[in-house]
Amino acid sequence: MGSVRTNRYSIVSSEEDGMKLATMAVANGFGNGKSKVHTRQQCRSRFVKKDGHCNVQFINVGEKGQRYLADIFTTCVDIRWRWMLVIFCLAFVLSWLFFGCVFWLIALLHGDLDTDYKDDDDKSKVSKACVSEVNSFTAAFLFSIETQTTIGYGFRCVTDECPIAVFMVVFQSIVGCIIDAFIIGAVMAKMAKPKKRNETLVFSHNAVIAMRDGKLCLMWRVGNLRKSHLVEAHVRAQLLKSRITSEGEYIPLDQIDINVGFDSGIDRIFLVSPITIVHEIDEDSPLYDLSKQDIDNADFEIVVILEGMVEATAMTTQCRSSYLANEILWGHRYEPVLFEEKHYYKVDYSRFHKTYEVPNTPLCSARDLAEKKYILSNANSFCYENEVALTSKEEEEDSENGVPESTSTDSPPGIDLHNQASVPLEPRPLRRESEIGSRR
């Protein structure tokens, strides 16, 4: 089982795998120059863009038009607004034209077009017409509009002379109601789609790998820009990579689940303020055997998904993003964004995407760390350097704002901070800030 798991979770494809794949392509008759073999020097295209759209195009789909027309309502909801407006206008105009032609044909076959009612006051002739005051196609078209929109100006009306005319008036009224219901329903469904809710759900630009509770963890940050909550919010993550099976089958995008606390339930989050999602790199993680150097040379993509129900409509929305291997910062942490004021908490989104480097973060893999092949620094050293990194950030910001350097908390000259780390230190809580992250 261990060997199978290692093969499945191998992220960085070796040169031997690339040569094996190329040999397979030639042997199977696919070596026509169009096949692409992804190596370390040639990274694959992003499968999920940063804005959440999937970078996929469908080609050679059989009976595409028929399949889309069979699900016309979903098609109308998914198309762009400009095409929705075109369909909206065409549906009414074509129905008016169709029934206008029908009423014109009825008048033509009944002989109503030969009668001039402007110079004739004989009401008996008017009563013999199928539709009064309809003696041309324009008049028939206007009567069709008046019937379907129930305008009723009063000059044109159907008589009991022709039952077919009466039937067409009733039929057009029913068709008009159906068109109204369909168009209004599609427009309302399109307006109520929770897709735009994703514009106020954000992911951090970069993911980070750092120590948390004595273990290497992959972390990324999510935030909600609205005050309205995302009900039943939960997160998922998958690692996408290519691999070759033991039988020699090439899988271009193998999807591997990344555990973010599904078993323990901590994948469900209360997204009021930005939260750091934590994936513990343990023996079940696809990143277990990867060191910093392996991450730098790897070719994979981590897709992160945030799902929840919109509070206003109770409709489920899904926000997506992805991180390539070069977008994962090893040995970094996110800057705090949640600050405790006197009577409330304040979230500073200008710090949302910012990170700071944490010294002495192990550069080895989580496996080597678990097997004690890498000796961690003293816990006080880690905490102290973590505090120094934050303090230096604040000093830089104070210097930019014009604060005198004498007010900063610099260490005395001639003292090495790293050498001082081995000395037991008193706890130094942050002056006014605390970061709330997901705790395992």
Rank of each mutant, 00 (worst) to 15 (best):
V208I: 07
D410L: 07
D267M: 06
V12R: 13
K372Q: 15
G152I: 03
V304F: 04
D122A: 02
E395H: 07
I269T: 07
P424I: 11
W83P: 06
A237C: 09
R8S: 14
N419Q: 11
T407A: 05
D71C: 08
I277D: 00
E341Q: 12
G31T: 11
F58W: 09
N259I: 06
Y153L: 04
K193R: 04
I269P: 08
F141Q: 05
A237L: 01
G308R: 04
V303W: 00
F103R: 00
G52I: 01
Y117C: 00
V37K: 14
E327R: 00
T159R: 02
L218M: 12
N401P: 10
Q148L: 01
S285K: 02
I106Y: 00
Q318R: 05
G29Y: 03
N224I: 07
K196M: 14
D17M: 05
K193F: 08
A70T: 04
S381R: 04
V134R: 00
C364F: 06
S204H: 02
Y349V: 07
E394K: 06
S408E: 14
L85S: 03
K195G: 09
K241M: 04
H229T: 10
C89H: 03
I258F: 06
L218H: 01
D254H: 05
N386G: 11
V77W: 13
S321M: 14
V158T: 00
T245C: 15
A325I: 02
E161Y: 02
Q293W: 08
F155I: 11
D120R: 00
A27K: 10
D257I: 04
Y374N: 10
T355D: 03
R367T: 01
K193W: 10
A22W: 03
M19F: 03
E301I: 00
G65H: 10
V235M: 05
D299V: 08
G33R: 07
G62E: 04
V158S: 02
F155M: 10
V166C: 03
L271S: 04
N360A: 11
N386P: 04
I415N: 13
Y68D: 05
V37L: 10
I87G: 15
L113S: 09
L201R: 01
S273C: 09
V170A: 03
E357N: 06
A366M: 08
A129Q: 08
I178C: 13
R320P: 02
Y250E: 15
G414I: 09
G111W: 02
T407N: 03
G33N: 12
F143C: 02
E395I: 08
W96T: 08
E16V: 05
D284V: 12
V303T: 12
V170L: 09
P252F: 14
H353Q: 06
D17S: 07
T245L: 06
L306G: 05
I59G: 11
R432W: 06
E435R: 08
C177R: 15
F88R: 02
L338E: 08
V304Y: 05
A370W: 05
V134N: 00
E400Y: 05
G2Y: 06
V166Q: 05
S13A: 12
H53T: 04
H353S: 10
T147L: 02
W104Q: 03
L324S: 08
A189T: 05
I87E: 15
K20Y: 06
L109I: 12
L417I: 09
E283T: 10
C162R: 00
Q238T: 11
R351S: 15
E371T: 07
V175P: 01
F73E: 14
N135I: 04
E357D: 08
D296T: 09
S411T: 12
P194M: 04
N419K: 08
S411R: 09
Q420D: 14
L69S: 12
C43S: 06
T150V: 04
T147S: 02
P362W: 03
T361N: 02
H234C: 10
R67W: 03
E405N: 10
R431W: 05
L390G: 15
F137C: 03
N198Y: 10
R156F: 02
Y68I: 14
V4F: 04
G261R: 10
Y384R: 06
I305K: 11
L113M: 10
F47C: 13
S14T: 14
S408L: 10
D294N: 04
V235I: 07
F352G: 01
V4S: 14
K34H: 11
R82I: 14
E405Y: 03
T39P: 12
K393S: 13
V4N: 11
T23Q: 10
D17K: 07
M168G: 07
E341A: 10
R320L: 12
Y345I: 11
K346M: 05
L69P: 10
I183K: 03
R367W: 01
F47L: 14
A129R: 05
C76I: 15
H53F: 08
I305Y: 11
K241L: 04
R67A: 06
I281K: 00
S408V: 13
A91S: 08
Y288S: 00
N419H: 10
L85N: 03
K227Y: 09
K196W: 08
F88K: 01
R5D: 15
R432M: 11
P286S: 00
I305F: 11
N259D: 09
Q172R: 08
K34E: 15
V423K: 10
L97F: 03
T245P: 13
T75M: 07
K215F: 03
I244E: 15
C162N: 02
G185A: 15
I209N: 00
D120F: 00
E405R: 09
L201W: 08
G29A: 13
V260I: 07
A207Q: 01
K354E: 11
L287T: 01
P427S: 12
M191N: 06
T23L: 01
L230Y: 07
A421F: 07
L239T: 00
S228C: 12
E340S: 10
L253P: 15
A181H: 11
W104E: 02
R197K: 11
E340H: 05
